[in-house]
């Protein structure tokens, strides 16, 4: 799991304001390229979109009419420009499936997905630090060994397996105390249905804590072994003072880049988790849009997810660069 840490690139030369600006401009450029790639890939999807909308009973003329109506016969460049300007002005067209504006479809779903991701993150970060530091502090105790073993297990488990087992345990087979499906009625805010959120949030949190807690544990052990802390110990400073004033801040700082990578992974890890719990977010929308070839919805969802993913990756880069320059 150390690979995620080292994935971060280092700025050559020191960290400066101009470096930051350049990094952000580059980020915008990369996002533009992402949109081009996404558009090209999706426009090449096989199957006649018009035929898919009209179904098997439609005639060839009806299909041709609809193609024209949707602008599918225009050149790719024109279609892309139209789409990009639409995205930037919030006019992302309408779903090919039911004619509703894409914004109306993915707006509420974005809220649902980000609510799920953020609640999980809010839980992951403090729990991971506490568990990781405690485990490092009690190094080689039964607790520590158990934590290391369990976290190895969880990092090896695919998310859908964790989800399925939690459903069987808490909702359907064994305990039956929580809803097994997390349906949020349209128009409702997800937090109006806390019982429905418990299992998906637990799944994401478990996976995040097991991963990040492990990194915090490693960083904390490193920090405790650092010359700085050893010096402080020699100087006779109290254990608690060393722990809270020196080792802890260092460990947290070292884990920060990884934490924002965990954030990125959590935001997108919602795809599988949403599917398992039938949660109405961007992930289920992507799977369903892929299946029904609803291009405008597919493009919008993936663009949102890719942007979120990229922003968190960028944040990881910047945090790590700041860490190094310090």
């Amino acid at each position: 799991m150390s690979s995620l840490m080292t994935r971060v690139s280092v700025p050559r030369g020191g960290l400066s304001f101009s470096w930051l600006v350049r990094r952000l401009l580059l980020g915008v450029f990369v996002l533009l390229l992402v949109s081009v790639l996404l558009f090209l890939v999706t426009q090449a999807l096989p199957g006649d979109v018009a035929r898919i909308i009209l179904g098997k009973d439609a005639t060839a003329e009806q299909v041709a009419d609809l193609r024209q109506q949707l602008g599918l016969d225009r050149s790719l460049v024109v279609q892309y420009w139209h789409w990009l300007t639409g995205v930037l002005t919030g006019e992302m067209g309408s779903s090919l499936q039911n004619g509703e504006p894409v914004v109306d479809i993915i707006g509420p779903r974005m809220l649902d997905s980000f609510a799920l991701g953020l609640i999980s993150l809010v839980l992951i970060l403090p729990i991971a630090v506490v568990v990781g530091v405690f485990s490092a502090h009690q190094r080689d105790s039964a607790w520590d060994k158990a934590f290391v073993a369990v976290s190895s297990l969880f990092t090896a488990l695919p998310a859908f397996v964790v989800g399925m087992l939690l459903i069987a345990l808490f909702a359907t087979s064994v305990l039956g105390v929580l809803p097994g499906v997390s349906n949020i009625p349209p128009g409702d805010m997800p937090w109006w249905h806390p019982a429905e959120l418990v299992l998906p949030v637990t799944t994401l949190t478990l996976m995040g804590v097991m991963y990040l807690g492990r990194l915090v544990r490693a960083s904390f052990i490193d920090a405790m072994n650092s010359e700085y802390v050893q010096m402080a110990t020699l100087k006779g400073l109290s254990g608690r003072r060393i722990l809270f004033r020196h080792a802890l801040p260092n460990a947290v700082a070292a884990s920060l880049p990884a934490a924002s990578l965990v954030a990125a992974v959590t935001i997108t890890g919602v795809v599988v988790v949403e599917y398992v719990y039938s949660y109405p977010g961007l992930g289920t929308a992507v799977v369903s849009a892929v299946n029904s070839h609803d291009l405008p919805v597919l493009q919008a969802c993936i663009l949102v997810l890719a942007t979120a993913y990229y922003v968190f990756n960028l944040l990881a880069d910047i945090l790590s660069a700041m860490g190094r320059s310090r």
Binding site: P179, G180, V181, N183, Y275, S278
Partner: peptide, 18 residues
């Protein structure tokens, strides 16, 4: 009428009385 992604999800919803 509540829509679910899969029949497994429909079954889970029924089991947890949703």
């Amino acid at each position: 009428i509540v829509e679910y992604e899969s029949q497994q999800a429909q079954a889970n919803a029924l089991l947890s009385k949703q």
